[in-house]
Amino acid sequence: MKRVMVGFLCLILVLSVMILSGCSNNTIDNQGSGSGKKISVYTSFYPMYDFTKKIGGDKINLTNLVPAGTEPHDWEPTPSDMVNLEKADVLIYNGAGMENWIDKVLNSIKNKKLITVETAKGLKLLDNSDKSEDLMYDPHVWLNSMLAKQQMEAIKNALVTADPSNKDYYEKNYADNAKKLDDLDQEYKATVAKFKSKDIVVAHQAFGYLCEAYGLKEVAIEGLTADSEPSPARMVEIVKFAKENNLKFIFFEELVSPKVAQAIAKEVGAETAVLNPLEGLEEDDIKAGKDYFSVMRENLEVLKKALE
């Protein structure tokens, strides 16, 4: 018994030394980052990161929480993410149910100076038409470039509040990018106007806002995440729909298994193509210079091929 007690005490001792040394590391870290003047900004996932980068430029220290290429629906924060958030100035997220982890994270951090921005707040949200999920609204607002503009404005306002000394810089960047978003919107409108067909079959219901803005109609293969399979009846429904409307393409996403889309495409003699909902971008693609604008234009090209 005595020996067990001694062993237990030793274990506690070792653990506490480890925890203490961990803490002291953190304090050194703190001092290190305190010397820089840039504000530290965290974003939840790729579109938020890209928008913030476009406005904050090199005046902010920007970190994306959900790593490149990961589905933002099933991400969870690591302890070091939490430590970083305790020291952050601004946290930018989409909201509307996109980040189902955000409430837990916000409730558990005690960072009083943290400015949080829910960019989808105040936008006109679409109801979630997939009743099997418990989301109230469709969160994929950024795929409508006019709504993306409003999200960017919310981000700009937050950065100005957190760092008023660079106000002009942020305002100018916002104005530039707002202009680019207007151009993108015009491009979409002009291209879609020439489409013969308006129906698309997509992997998961992500393109509601895009479709609403430009008069397209999406049919989503039900809840197509990696671990849920469609029922055969649903597949038949989609096959019939695709045949009746003579669809040439079935779309899937980079982050989701393409197997079901391929099976349906084979059935109707269509091709498959990637339509990117921009929930994440692989690191290689970011390095290759891809961003919101280039991916949105790629999507437009793919849509053009499929519908014109």
Binding site: P67, A68, G69, T70, E71, D74, T225, A226, D227, E229, P230, S231, P232, M235, E254, L255, V256, S257, K259, V260, Q262, A263, E282, E283, D284
Partner: peptide
């Protein structure tokens, strides 16, 4: 994994989607 794609999607199997 640097480009951590969705792991589960590599193991995704469904009897109605077989190549």
């Amino acid at each position: 994994v640097k480009n951590s794609a969705n792991f589960n999607s590599f193991l995704f199997g469904s009897i109605v989607a077989i190549s």
